[in-house]
């Protein structure tokens, strides 16, 4: 496990030694701040629902931007060759990098907690529901991060990693939105695969273990794929 910690530390150094982390945090906070305030002032709602509804869309753009460099950068610079010849398992590399990206996302989400707290001065905020919403966002974030990590492991070009990651996330994002166009059997499956129904439950304040398991399974699956894809580079 100490290898995971060493990689996590180095990835965080990389994020915070370069402008990536700051640009990411700033833009994310400005956009989410705007979403909050528009909900509050335009509709006069003292709630975080506007933000929670739009957040998946934000994630579609923000998450690939933090995951695209995870492996592509190492592959294009050749540093992956050093990493792969150290006594470290691929899974540890994947986990360390994933946790670093998750830390960055978590700090962005944590910073947005300012908004519900300030809203609570203006009116009553449903604390439980807000917390559940954040939990749901966090879970979805983990799943999207793992998809982005996978996308980054298949190419050494960061821009391609962004696009591939975006498309995978898009597929899961849209799957639940077009259920009306399909026969019930198909739509039920799509509804289950898509993130919509799961995030919807959680943001209403209903924390169902099935939804939690859904997101964690998705995360685990894509992290496994990432490790597999890194391993398979060697067997070519």
């Amino acid at each position: 496990m100490s290898s995971v910690r060493v990689i996590l530390r180095k990835e965080l150094l990389t994020y915070f030694n370069s402008p990536i982390a700051y640009v990411f945090l700033t833009v994310f906070l400005i956009l989410s701040g705007w979403l909050f305030s528009s909900g509050m002032f335009l509709r006069g709602e003292a709630s975080v629902s506007t933000f929670i509804e739009i957040a998946p869309l934000l994630f579609l753009f923000f998450i690939p931007s933090i995951t695209m460099r995870l492996f592509s950068e190492e592959l294009s610079r050749g540093t992956f060759e050093v990493l792969a010849t150290l006594p470290v398992r691929d899974g540890e590399i994947v986990l360390g990098k994933f946790l670093a990206a998750a830390t960055l996302l978590a700090s962005a989400l944590a910073a947005t907690l300012v908004f519900p707290v300030s809203v609570s001065f203006a009116g009553d905020v449903d604390g439980g529901r807000t917390l559940a919403s954040y939990g749901g966002l966090g879970l979805m974030g983990l799943a999207f991060l793992s998809m982005g990590a996978f996308a980054s492991s298949v190419t050494q070009r960061e821009i391609l990693a962004f696009i591939v990651g975006f498309l995978i996330m898009m597929a899961f994002f849209l799957a639940g939105k077009f259920t009306v166009f399909f026969p019930p059997a198909v739509s039920a499956v799509l509804d289950f695969i898509g993130v919509d129904s799961h995030i919807g439950n959680i943001s209403r304040g209903v924390v169902d273990t099935r939804d939690v398991i859904y997101f964690l399974t998705l995360t685990g699956f894509f992290l496994y794929l990432t490790a597999y894809s890194l391993g398979s580079r060697r067997w070519k």
Binding site: S2, S3, N17, G78, T79, E81, L86, P87
Partner: peptide, 22 residues
């Protein structure tokens, strides 16, 4: 090609590799 991480300092880099070496 001597792959290195340009954004790290020499110290950070050696600590990183050493850490992964256990």
């Amino acid at each position: 090609t001597t792959p290195l991480y340009p954004e790290l300092t020499v110290r950070e880099y050696l600590e990183f590799i050493g850490g992964l070496r256990g």
